[in-house]
Structure formats: C-alpha cells, structure tokens
Design a protein around this nucleic acid. Structure first.
Length: 579
DNA sequence: GCCGTTTTCGGCCCGACTGTTTTCAGTCG
C-alpha cells in the first residue's frame, strides 16, 4: 500500500471522528499523521519493518498500529468499524457549501440525514431549523447550497471527462466493425467544465454497430435517440453521446459533433456562400453528397482554413484569413509556481526539481507559500533562509535545468505584500495571490489587487479570481482595470493550470492581450504529478487564442533569467530612490 | 491523539465571517 493511499485512509478516519466527537484535536492528530505519511521521504514498509515508524513525528501508540495494519494488510479494522457506523453516502453531504463535518454529524444523529435528498426533504419540512445550532437562515442557505451542489454534480471537470472519454474511445475502437472512434464535443474543445462526453465513430454498418454497442453494455441506460445518436451514461451519472457516421462522412461528423452552437452557425453560414451545407453528419454541395474522410478534407473541400478544436466556441476565427499559431505544450520551456514540502506541497525540493527537469524544462521556479498563509504552512523569514539553502544544495541534482527562487506571497487586505521590502529582494520572482477575504466588494478587491500590482517586486499575479470550478465562485474584480495596470507595470498574469481553477478564465484573456499583458502558464503544483497542470494551462491559453509570444515561459532560459534579473534590479533601484 | 531540556497535563499553525447565540461554534481558506 503506497503512502498516499495510507494517507487517504487516515484522512477518512479523521473525517469519521469529526462527525462523531466534539473534541477536534483527535481528528487533527489523524490529519497531521496523514500529511506526515504523505510527505515521507523514506519507504513506509521499511519504517514499519524496522519499528522506526514510531520515531516519525505525529505517530504514536494509537495511530502507529493503524498504519502498521494498513501497510501489512492493506486495510484497517478500525476504519472498517467506523464505516459500519454511518450510511455509505454520508460524505456526499460535504458537497453542500457551508456544511462541514460537525454539522453533518449533528444532522445525522438528530434527524438521521445521510443524503442530499434527505437533507432537502428535512429542510423543506422545516425540521433542520429546529436543530440546536441551526436556524431559519441556515436552513435557507442549505437549500440554496443543495441547488448549487446539484448543478455541480450534473457537470464534470475536464480531466475527469477526458479520462472517461478516452477509455470509452478505446473500448469502441476495439469493435472490429468500427473503423474509427474519436473524442468530440466539448471535451475535444477542452472546455473547463462539461455536461456530457461525446464520442464520434465511423462505421460502414451503423445498425449492426449500434446493436453491438448495446450488446457489449459499453454504456448504462443505452438508448437510441435518432439514426446517428446513442445516449447513455457511465459511472451512474455522466451523460454519454455516441455519434455514428459513415467513414466517408467522418470529417463532417467530427466537425459537427465537436462544434459549439455558435461556431456551427457561423460555419454553416460561411460555407453556404460556396453552395455547401451540412445535413445530419454529412456534407452536401447543391444537393450532392461530398465525401469528407477527415476534418482536414472537410476544411479543404469548403475552402476554409482549419480552426483548432479549442477555438470552436465562437465563429471568431472563421472571420480571419491569417491566424497566429496557437501555443503548443512543446513550446513551454519552463514554469513557475511550484510548491514543496516546505509549505503545503507533498514532494521535497529535490523531488520537484528532478521531476521538472525530467519533464524537459530548461528552468523551474519554486514558490512556497508566504508567512501570512498559516493554513498552508507558509514560511517565516527564518524558514525562508533554510528553504533557499536547500534549493541551492539541490540545484546540481537537476542540472542543467536552471532553478529560480521565488514565493507565492499573500496580497494582504490593504493590497500590500505580506513579505515586506526587506525580504522581497531575496527572490528571483514573486507571485502575488489573494488568499483571504474573498467576499470583498468588487471596488475594494480591485483596489487591493491594483496596489499589489504597483509593488515593483511583484512579477506575476497568481490565480486572478480565486475561483474553484464547481465549488466556489471567484472574487469579483474589474478585469479591465487590472489588465490595464498589469500592462503598465509589466506584471505578468498567471494562467493557473490546476483543473479546479483554470484561472484566469480564457474568456477574459483577449482583453488583457490588447493591453500588452504577458502570461505565465503555471501548474500551481503541490506534487510531482501536478506538474502536468501545465498541460491544462496550455489548453486555456489555446482557447484564448494565445501564441508562444504571449507566454513568458515559452521564452528560452537566458531571456527569462535576464528579464527577472532586470526587473529585480529596477525594483531595488526604485526602492532606494523612495528611501 | 500527540507532544514536551521551563511541561506527563494542557495545550494543539491563524483569522475572518456567519449565524447562532447571549459568549461562541462551525466553516472556510
């Protein structure tokens, strides 16, 4: 059993304890142990075998045997017993905003509520408001929260959808009468949140193929919608649409099933001038069928320059004859915004550096949280010295990759940066982010961020709106004023590639480009695995129509080093003049 | 539940906000 699975089991135990016990510290102890195990540098089985497990901080005579159990048998008797005490779905209630484990535990013990449906019924009946600690207002907020949770569960994040789509595609491709199967729809457009997963297939025998898909139970709730469409679901609720086309129409079918409504309308209007029309999943010219074996052939036939799938939200690109090349993953030369175990990351400095080099980066910027971010283990000035010494000590391990030392510093309520000007000069770069008081009025939040942009040491503005897709609205800001100031001050704006954030939204980016703003595609990585968030970040950039020249980290290492050094010198100079 | 060269008991990363209360508990980051 690997360390992250053990950590998850300990987190589960902590959650059950929090449901049932008033003393929060026992649960905290399990959570702390989970974090310790997760970030362990040594082999967990080795620790158990030698008994040195008990030397690990946070693991004592109660948690130790549970960890041993997990390592040796892959399960924990203690956890299994806890599971039996509550209905299996009880944690689904955590999706409802403002409902924490304490309240969930109370609702279960007093009203027996263990699902969102039961919670809704009890709230509508006015029972929730009568529970001690609850009231009419809370009950109302719970009902609003249930709506929010329901909308969120009917949609899924892109990476989840992509994984489902790819697996489905592979299953379909294995059926020998299917000539081709490709992911289409909003997943192919790389939309950040999707309602359903679309797969488009090519087959000479549509009827037989539909029968085969039914017989193999590839989707649940198989249903034929029309001649070309199958509807179903997987994992209980993810809606699946399978589009069935002839091989000679696969190009038209892929275009049609990938396009948004707006793009399709604009496309049909454009090709109508040449006498073309799309009918169902095929292309026709003045009533005669035109073969389109793939999309390339389709674009060629109708004499329209091809538009990348990510750009098929609106008809904008169809209006332009010449277009700049969109940024590709392979254009990224490095990245910034990488956390380590010094704050809330799960891998050490060395592990993150080596993994970054192994991704082929020329450079990486390490940025742990700053002192104000207590909840994320932010670094005090003293810890910073140690962290920087450790980075210096491990530079060589990731050679020839270049390492930049930075921070993700907090933008305080008044817009100042929590590390003062006495500390900021020690960094090669500074990412400034808002992590508190999200519900400030728009004017105040905008003024707060504008002031941060005025700080000459700030290099990049982190996750501009703080949104968490499907779970939290971003803070409200005046985008235009922020973009304008960022352009004036030469502060870059982060494209945060964490699939839960994808912040700044691609829909806003065009306005920033007009004001000369540069972007940095950052993973906000808290583990080696999360370095791959630069991939989802690149999707956002592509959706916004960005090319490598708009992206700071598409620049070569020497140019980046020079830029950062020049910026830091200018800040120091300005600081001296001011003093 | 874990920890401890001022502690073997009494603390436990901090602060804002909200709604419930009449002094505070729960949630969120």
């Amino acid at each position: 059993m690997d360390r992250s699975t053990i950590a998850r089991a300990l987190d589960d135990i902590a959650a059950y304890i929090e449901l049932s016990e008033p003393n929060p510290f026992r649960a905290r102890a399990f959570e702390r142990a989970a974090r310790t195990i997760e970030t362990l540098q040594e082999d967990i089985e080795e620790l158990v075998a030698t008994g040195r497990l008990y030397e690990t901080p946070g693991i004592g005579k109660a948690i130790g045997p549970i960890v041993e159990d997990l390592v040796r048998t892959g399960s924990s008797r203690y956890l299994e017993d806890l599971r039996k005490q509550y209905p299996p779905g009880i944690f689904e209630l955590r999706r409802v905003p403002r409902l924490g484990l304490k309240k969930i535990g109370q609702l279960y013990s007093e009203l027996g509520i263990a699902s969102v449906d039961e919670l809704e019924a009890a709230s509508r009946a006015g029972k929730v408001a009568k529970v001690r600690g609850f009231g009419a207002k809370t009950q109302q907020k719970i009902l609003e929260g249930i709506d929010f949770a329901r909308v969120a569960t009917s949609q899924i994040l892109l990476p989840v959808a992509l994984e489902i789509a790819q697996r489905l595609r592979e299953q379909l491709a294995q059926i020998d009468i299917i000539a081709d199967a490709e992911v289409s729809g909003s997943v192919r457009r790389r939309l950040e949140v999707v309602h359903n997963v679309n797969i488009t297939i090519a087959t000479k025998t549509p009827d037989r193929t539909m029968g085969e898909i039914r017989n193999r139970s590839i989707v649940d709730g198989f249903e034929i919608v029309d001649d070309t469409t199958i509807r179903g679901a997987v994992r209980g609720h993810t809606a699946i649409l399978i589009h069935v086309a002839k091989p000679e129409d696969f190009g038209a079918a892929m275009l049609r099933t990938t396009a948004s409504e707006a793009f399709l309308l604009a496309f049909e209007k454009k090709i109508a001038a040449g006498g073309f029309e799309l009918r169902d999943l095929a292309l026709f010219r003045r009533g005669r069928h035109v073969a389109t074996r793939d999309e390339q052939e389709l674009f060629h036939r109708v004499d329209v320059p091809s538009v990348a799938p990510e750009r098929r939200e609106s008809g904008d690109d169809l209006k332009r004859r010449r277009r700049v090349p969109l940024v590709e993953q392979t254009d990224l030369r490095g990245t910034f915004h990488v956390h380590t175990t010094w704050s809330d990351g799960r891998n050490s400095v060395k592990e993150m550096l080596v993994a970054s080099r192994d991704r082929g980066f020329q450079y990486v910027g390490i940025s742990d949280h700053s002192k104000n971010a207590y909840y994320a283990g932010g670094l005090t000035e003293e810890q910073l010295k140690q962290q920087q010494a450790e980075i210096d000590a491990h530079r060589g391990d990731a050679a020839p990759m270049r390492v930049f030392k930075g921070t993700e510093a907090d933008i305080l309520i008044d817009g100042s940066i929590d590390y003062g000007h006495g500390t900021l000069p020690i960094f090669d770069f500074v990412i400034a982010s808002v992590h508190s008081r999200f519900n400030m009025p728009k004017d105040e939040m905008t003024a707060r961020i504008l002031r941060a942009l005025d700080d000459p040491f700030v290099t990049i503005l982190g996750h501009l709106t703080g949104r968490l897709l499907l779970s939290r609205e971003g803070y409200s800001v005046d985008f235009d004023r922020i973009f304008e100031r960022a352009g004036e001050r030469g502060v870059m704006i982060e494209i945060n590639g964490n699939p839960n954030r994808l912040d700044v939204d691609w829909r806003q980016i065009g306005r920033a480009v007009e004001r000369g703003v540069l972007f940095s595609i950052n993973p906000d990585a808290h583990s080696i695995k999360e370095l791959s968030h630069v991939v989802s970040g690149t999707w956002v950039a592509r959706k916004a129509g960005l090319s490598p020249k708009n992206i700071f980290n598409c620049a070569e290492v020497d140019a980046v080093a020079e830029f950062l050094s020049r910026r830091r010198s200018a800040a120091l100079k300005k600081l001296k003049i001011e003093n």
